[in-house]
Amino acid sequence: MSSVFAEPGPPVEIDATELLSCYGLTVWPSEVVRSPDEAVAAAERLGWPVVLKVADPGASRRAGTVRLGLTGPEMMCHAYAGFADQLGEEVELAVQRMAPQPAVPTVVGVIEDQAFGPVVSFGLGEVTARLLLDQGFRLAPLTREDAAALVRSVRAAPLLFGEYGYPPVAVDALEDLLVRVGRLANDLPELARLDLDQVLVGESSVIILGARATLRTPAGPRLDGGPRRLS
């Protein structure tokens, strides 16, 4: 007898920008470039100052993959040449307009757990927080109370509330983003993984700098036998 469910295919990675827009979330504009001239032209369109970075969204986890505060063609060409020397001529780079500062970098994610279903994760984007695996988790969908508890569950949370010399930031906007991400995760059983890296939390808003999503093909069944909770 054949199985009721189709065998799962390989996961498919997609640009998450359009998906996030359906839930009222916008990714900060960027353009992939393949030459210094393309990089300068992109910066002119986006507006100086800009960032030049490795296009792979996962590169934000590695040092030396971003050049900040480029204000003109000469600085851009110098930064581009530095990447070519460091990583090779074939490296794919992206230009992105500088986000408002000051802001606290954070990381938001979703994974589809076989036992619990969609799980939303949150942590700060600083290197130390990543190394210490300072993350919190909540099952999707999230209420506003769930989102508030998730933000406060990480050990580095005081940095968002004006402690240790950091200015207080828009935690309410961050919580709203987490609720929207949780709704997205709950609505889409085909979503295997979502990474928002980084999410800058500023004094009045949040900015998503990078996003990517991985879909299962086809979407498998999602168990929904009642209330779920993480132990």
Rank of each mutant, 00 (worst) to 15 (best):
S205A: 15
A6C: 07
E112S: 12
V110E: 03
F122P: 09
W48Q: 09
D37C: 07
L70F: 08
G82H: 14
Y23I: 02
Y166Q: 11
A55W: 01
P141W: 01
D172V: 10
A140T: 01
A173Y: 05
S21A: 11
G162M: 01
T26K: 10
L178V: 05
Y166T: 14
L131Y: 11
A157C: 07
G136H: 06
G182T: 09
F5S: 05
A192D: 10
V127E: 13
A213N: 04
G225R: 13
P49R: 09
L209W: 12
S35I: 03
T65A: 11
P57G: 04
P218M: 00
Q96R: 02
Q135R: 13
L230G: 02
E112K: 13
G165T: 02
G202H: 07
V206W: 11
E38W: 06
L131D: 11
A115P: 00
V199W: 09
A213P: 04
L68S: 08
T106D: 07
P105V: 11
R97P: 03
T143E: 02
L70E: 00
S2H: 13
E163S: 14
A156V: 10
I207S: 09
D113A: 05
T217D: 13
E44D: 12
Q86V: 14
L133G: 14
G109K: 01
G123Y: 08
E90N: 15
A42W: 00
G9C: 04
E203W: 02
P105T: 06
I14L: 08
R193Y: 15
S205V: 03
I111P: 07
A81H: 14
G82E: 14
A63L: 13
L93T: 10
L188K: 00
V95P: 00
R212A: 12
L131H: 10
A41I: 08
R61W: 15
V66C: 04
R130D: 08
F122H: 04
A173F: 08
S204C: 09
D224S: 11
G64V: 10
P36W: 01
V32Y: 12
G58V: 15
V127G: 03
M76K: 06
D176W: 07
L230N: 01
V4D: 12
G210D: 14
S3G: 06
P227L: 13
A173S: 08
E145A: 12
P73W: 05
R144G: 08
A81Y: 14
F122T: 10
R216K: 12
D56S: 11
E31W: 03
V51L: 12
L191A: 04
V12D: 04
V91R: 15
L174N: 05
T143I: 07
V151A: 09
I208R: 03
P168L: 00
L174K: 06
G125C: 09
V51G: 07
V206F: 09
L93N: 06
Y80H: 15
I14Q: 02
C77E: 14
L132I: 11
R138P: 12
R138Y: 13
L230H: 01
V206R: 09
D195E: 15
